[in-house]
Simulated scan of single mutants.
Amino acid sequence: MQTTLIRLDHLPACERFDFWWEAVGQSVVSVDAASAHAADFWAEMTAVDLGLIQISRVRSASFEARRTTRRIRQSDPEFYQLNYTVTGRSGLEQQGRQCALNAGDFTLYDTSRPFHAWSAATPSQPPHGIVVQFPHRAIPLPTGTVERLLSQPIPGRTGVNGLLAGLLMRLAGPRPAPAPPTTTILELITGLLADHAGVAKPGDIPLIKVQAFIEEHLPDSGLSPTSIAQAHHMSLRNLQRLFERHGLTAATWIRDRRLARARRDLTDPRCDTLAVRSIGARWGFQNDAHFSRTFRAAYGVSPGAYRTGVREGSTLTP
């Protein structure tokens, strides 16, 4: 569990708005933003990295943010984001659906599709929310079921929803609580979405447990379907069947998660002192040539060219 705090107090007022949205692009997802308070903008973020899941707690002045097709072409991490409004008012438009959110509401949206989000203060409280980010395939629900839930208000005060809201508040609070297993959070999110969709909670939770295990061991170059099966006391064939039910393979999942983590590091200024080959090695790629070939096959450019393109603002299409 890695926690990062981003604040703007140290910056001149004229630099804060641009700095903030650059940080949001690196920590959450890139957007085009506007605010009536751009000249005197204030905001702070606590980002908690749990591997397969990232939780970001944000307080800020009112704003509007748009995730455009151009932004998606530049970088598409293929995430869902579950937003929880703590105070203030917020809203979202995606897939032709628009929802207004009050304190205590969740809503789900997809970073691979354009969206328009906004937040506003109430007379007594500024905008304050929590965003949970996770890969599309981390939730064992049919894609069609999840898509029907995009940009809909989901009450978050009772039952499983209230339990999830309380857990997120503790994890990203001023004094972060110890994180439970990633599988626990994913099971709560799955339960919230299944309940709101009116479908049965899937019984295939073991896949979430295996995916969380993979996430924790990505740096291990010896991670393989065989080692994963052994760690979970199942046969290799049963492991493969677990993934096949979702149109996946264990080897592909390992590769894609390693690439996603490496790509994030390539765009992170905090990793600028690391050589490209070092970033590949830290996520389990055995050598520089293998990392470069695999990255190019996935994203169409070498890791070094990708890092340079992001720095120069080029449009890179995975």
Rank of each mutant, 00 (worst) to 15 (best):
T68E: 07
P142E: 10
T87F: 03
V86H: 07
G96L: 02
V131E: 13
A103S: 06
T122P: 14
T85P: 05
D105H: 11
E147L: 12
R137L: 09
S90K: 05
T143H: 04
N161F: 07
P140R: 00
P155W: 00
N83K: 06
G166D: 14
H136S: 04
R113H: 09
P77H: 08
V132L: 07
E64M: 10
L92D: 04
Y80V: 02
Q81K: 10
T145S: 04
R57G: 04
G104C: 01
E147S: 01
L168D: 03
H116P: 03
P114M: 12
R137S: 00
H136I: 02
I139M: 08
P114W: 09
E93C: 08
P77I: 04
Y80Q: 04
S90Y: 04
L149V: 03
L149R: 05
V132T: 13
R66M: 02
L149E: 10
D76E: 11
T85R: 00
G156L: 07
R148L: 05
T87W: 03
S90A: 15
D76I: 02
R57F: 08
A117K: 01
P155Q: 02
S119A: 15
P140D: 07
L92I: 03
I154P: 02
I154G: 02
Y109E: 02
R113A: 09
G156K: 00
E93H: 05
I55Y: 03
Q152S: 07
T158Q: 15
